Lab assay of single mutants.
Amino acid sequence: TDVTFHVNGRNLHLKGADEELLRRIEELIRRGADIEELEKAVKEWEK
Rank of each mutant, 00 (worst) to 15 (best):
T1F: 15
T1Y: 15
T1P: 09
T1I: 15
D2E: 07
D2N: 04
D2R: 01
D2P: 01
V3H: 15
V3S: 02
V3K: 13
V3N: 04
T4W: 06
T4I: 15
T4Y: 07
T4P: 01
T4M: 08
F5H: 15
F5A: 11
F5D: 14
F5T: 07
H6G: 02
H6M: 06
H6A: 03
V7K: 02
V7E: 07
V7Y: 05
V7G: 02
V7I: 07
V7M: 02
V7F: 03
N8P: 00
N8S: 05
N8R: 03
G9H: 02
R10Y: 11
R10D: 12
R10S: 14
R10K: 14
R10M: 14
R10I: 13
N11C: 15
N11T: 15
N11G: 04
L12S: 00
H13W: 03
H13Y: 09
H13D: 04
H13M: 07
H13S: 06
L14E: 00
L14V: 15
L14H: 00
K15V: 12
G16C: 09
A17L: 04
A17D: 04
A17S: 04
D18A: 11
D18P: 14
D18I: 02
D18H: 09
E19F: 09
E19S: 10
E19K: 12
E20C: 12
E20T: 13
E20M: 12
L21V: 08
L21Y: 02
L21R: 01
L22H: 03
L22M: 06
L22A: 03
R23L: 09
R23H: 11
R23M: 09
R23K: 12
R23A: 10
R23T: 08
R24P: 00
R24D: 06
R24C: 09
I25A: 02
I25Y: 00
E26T: 09
E27S: 10
E27I: 09
E27T: 09
E27Q: 10
L28G: 04
L28H: 05
L28Y: 05
I29L: 06
I29S: 01
R30S: 13
R30N: 09
R31I: 10
R31W: 12
G32W: 02
G32A: 03
G32Y: 03
A33Q: 07
D34C: 08
I35K: 01
I35P: 01
E36F: 06
E36Y: 06
E36I: 06
E36R: 05
E36G: 07
E37V: 09
E37D: 12
E37G: 08
L38S: 01
L38Y: 01
L38N: 00
E39P: 00
E39A: 05
E39C: 09
E39Q: 09
K40Q: 13
K40A: 12
K40W: 12
A41N: 08
A41T: 13
V42K: 03
V42R: 02
V42S: 03
V42A: 07
K43S: 13
K43T: 09
K43Y: 11
K43D: 12
K43Q: 11
K43F: 11
E44T: 08
E44G: 10
E44S: 10
W45H: 12
W45T: 04
W45M: 05
W45A: 05
E46G: 11
E46N: 12
E46L: 09
E46P: 13
K47V: 13
